[in-house]
Design a protein around this nucleic acid. Sequence first.
RNA 1: CGGGACGUGGCGCAGUCUGGUAGCGCACUCGGCUGGGGGCCGAGUGGUCGCCGGUUCAAAUCCGGCCGUCCCGACCA
Length: 476
Amino acid sequence: MTEAVEKLTKKNEDPSKWYLQLVRMAKLADYGPVRGTFAIRPYGFEIWERIQRDLDDRFKATGHKNAYFPLLIPESYLKKEAEHVEGFDPELAWVTIGGREELEERLAIRPTSESIICDFYKNWIQSYRDLPLLINQWCNVLRWEKVTRPFLRTSEFLWQEGHTVHATAEEARAETLQMLNVYQDCFHEAMSIPVLTGMKSPSERFAGAVETFTCEALMGDGRALQAATSHDLGQNFAKAFDITFLDENQDRVYPYQTSWGFSTRVIGGLILVHGDDRGLKLPPKLAPTQAVIVPIWRGNNKGEVRREAETLFDELKDAGLRMEADLDEEHSPGWKFNEHELRGVPVRVELGPKDIEKGQAVLVRRDTGEKEFVARKELPARLNELMGEIQENMLRQAAAFRHENTRQAESYGEFKEIIAEKRGFVVAPWDGTEETEQKIKEDTKATIRLLPFERQEGKDLVSGKPGKTAVFARAY
RNA sequence: CGGGACGUGGCGCAGUCUGGUAGCGCACUCGGCUGGGGGCCGAGUGGUCGCCGGUUCAAAUCCGGCCGUCCCGACCA
């Protein structure tokens, strides 16, 4: 329940230190013994479970089923798709010994499951009647990362990976975009995180994909986070893994595939987007505790206040709110206020002798700090209403921040200045060449986060050649 | 992987230069008083100093190797 009384570093003073302290102080995660491994603690995991449920419902609503595939992937499978293995090779962890015997073929711990899943799909798909195949997997993956950070980049992480197979290229593309929208809806509606959607440049494309689409979010420190991706794999994997089917014309043809993923990284996004100097700030839809009752008592009225708090707790719980009553007698109200703000609980309900006398309670919003006095019998309705208001306001606040930190650059000088001094998203035309993309990266550390769906003509700031809109930023 | 800093009870740190057998604050336990923004007093529990090896009568302290963490850079679906 309690944690060391340490002052949380100010968010803009040292964002990195702030982030790491918050992760630990709010009991979201804890370091493991192997580099880049972390335990997700119950409070953090409960947030993940709610995100997971929201997304999973959306997958089911769009016709997908869940399944589970093996953790270990034979080396030969990974090698079948050339670009794929090249992309992942540097980050693989290998199993070379089983029991006490050296294995004939070493086995990779999955960094992603395209290759092993394709091997199954090869047998599962024979006819056009077997398509589309719409499967999702919730699992862990392992990538031997050099620089890790809780949630944002961990060696092992939890995610979902969707793997679908379609008869036509059009269908596969439609699926890719549909899932991109599913992600966007989850970010906006459940997480109150506004995201930009668009296409990756070829250099940022998933290894083996024909086209990669992305959801990009802007963090509070002005850096971008790739929050989810959806890939159109074309026939690349089908050809590599020999997945074929007989179509209506009795021709044996290769199908078209997609894959799409979303990971525990988004918890890091949640912290960075909404968190402030007081700590975490959770959107009501994801908060393990939506409102916490803090009783204010004195020695002589402790019993009465406690009884009132317990009654109120039951009432609000029955009204459908995820409640907590902090009846701990060790800590002062002030201590509890700080603690629950650190944990990001959306609303605090203060109940003291004066409130009981007046038949009211004090509500304090975590997102704005606003205080309101509400009559006891109106509390359930008001609190439920507040949850919606806070959920929406958090999205609005984050969207306003993104708006303020999205800038057009008219010249390369201006571009460099914005990235160096203000960060955020910079919108500028790009000539489509890897050379200019690379130069910008070398000069400014900014990369193309995405190519929007609607792009305007203009002149590339570096080359002066004709180009179209791209969104740049420094990324996590 | 390169440059830098660091690793001492759960957390933050002192002690390391000048070897002599571990200390402070917070947390935790017990008792009492308190309680509308991180309360107070008293009494306690807990570590052999990241790991391995070396030097020495003696190592948290000196030397070597390894592991890990943080920052910067490279890499990163």
